[in-house]
Design a binder for these strands. Structure first.
Lengths: 91, 91
DNA sequence: GCTTGCGCTACATATTTGGTAGCGATACGC
DNA sequence: GCGTATCGCTACCAAATATGTAGCGCAAGC
């Protein structure tokens, strides 16, 4: 499945995650993602735009409606991750 | 977030996906994942075991309870992906 | 016209992934 | 006991991908 392939690349989920609460400029996004290199970010953004989940606007890059739906799933994913970490720490 | 980092590596989501309906042997898993190289698969399995979502058993590798929960989220992710593909195809 | 910040590209280096061969262990029939 | 079949997995090298750093072209503000 093409979509899952793109999402399984480095920084892809993270970029989406950072865009959840509003658009960000290229440079702001870069900082938010632990200063990912501009080449990597640019490549990932191109792929995500190709998927139709991210699009550039006046205030920087933002999520499309499909991206917003994906963001909600990511929220569950992050909750799962938190729970997992907590469970493992409790051992 | 460490968990999302591991999940954002190549084949990680796919491996989890292929284990949804029951354990698989190392070699069966390899075939299921488009014949991923054993070195990559082994590395990913080690990381997923480290995360506590996959574990080896008598009939091969299987999901832990945390892995099963994650699998349900992945199901939503795949549904999202299908919808996205359909929407884009309809354009 | 000079500065500032923007998106983004170029390019060399480092890291990750992939391909192929095959090892040691276990289980089977013979 | 002896081939042989399959298992999980390692070694090793080539190919693909990510990173780091520098800086270009552009638009806005002064």
């Amino acid at each position: 499945m093409r979509a899952l392939d793109v999402l399984g690349r480095r920084w892809a989920l993270r970029v989406l995650w950072e865009l959840r609460d509003g658009p960000r400029t290229f440079r702001a996004l870069r900082e938010a993602c632990d200063d990912v290199s501009p080449s990597s970010l640019n490549q990932r953004l191109a792929e995500l735009r190709g998927l139709g989940v991210v699009e550039p606007g006046d205030t920087g890059y933002g999520l499309t409606p499909a991206g917003v739906r994906l963001g909600r799933i990511l929220l569950e994913l992050s909750r799962w991750a938190e729970d997992t970490v907590r469970d493992r720490a409790a051992k």
